[in-house]
Amino acid sequence: MQEKIAQLIASLKSCRYITDDELATTLVLMEVLGRPILIEGEAGVGKTAIAAALACARDTQLIRLQCYEGIDASSAVYEWNYTQQLLWIKICEQRDESVHESDIYDQRFLLERPLLKSIRQDKAPVLLIDEVDRADEAFEAFLLEVLSDFSITIPELGTLEARSIPHVVLTSNGTRELSDALRRRCLFHYVPFPPFDKELAILAAHLPEVDLKLLMQITKFVQTVRDWDIRKRPGVAETIDWARALCSFDVSLLVDNPDIVRTTLSCLLKTTEDHRFVSEQDVAALMAKSA
């Protein structure tokens, strides 16, 4: 197991995802025990990126199901291509051919949605069920059923068994309390805001061309902003965006470019309240501290 964990950390790093042994252990367990993993954490800390990085590390396909309010089984599992079915019936009528039910409900008219697609792959893909908390309770219950036996029953075709069991990654932002039943079936991982060293490594991995000194200043700045009592604390995604924004202005040191720092702060502060909360003096003091 230790070797697998070390290998996974290295593979994820080659896919530009910096992680520690906590997450790597959970991901290895997910593969060993065949259980889905539920990932929670603040927005922008890299929950969705975990699935993409895992797919890259395992050299397999990433299939994504984005949950939203009102999502139903037809958007998640399968749908019949009604238009093509109607056209097929019309063509048969014009050719004076008889149309059997089995002809209409054939696999060629089946539109595979992410859940069905994920169990029909020869090589186990990574199935990302993103922001599962946005879906309704009814859909969550349906998801439970699919995740428990990895087979899908289509009344017209019968039960389709999984060719390979996908690695299922569920993410949640905590906008709704998920059911205990779903939580019980999953391994759990919480992604906190990264400490200084890790965030610096992430920045360096994403922006290798940028001077390390500037990246250190940016990281220090963001880490301090996170400690402030603001409504929306910036995640790693925001840090990367801000670093990119600063680089586009050819900033080499924060203290030398106070105006650019202030104008680009909108990459970090996402609400009006937060903008009001952070005064110019705060920013100036923070720049001096980060230098």
Binding site: M1, Q2, I5, D21, E22, T25, T26, L29, I37, E40, G174, D180, R183, R184, L187, F188, H189, Y190
Partner: peptide, 18 residues
């Protein structure tokens, strides 16, 4: 350390528990 990580992934359900 890894044993603790493994136990935590299996036993925790929520952030507070984590």
């Amino acid at each position: 350390r890894l044993s603790r990580n493994a136990c935590r992934a299996i036993c925790c359900r929520k952030r507070e528990q984590w």
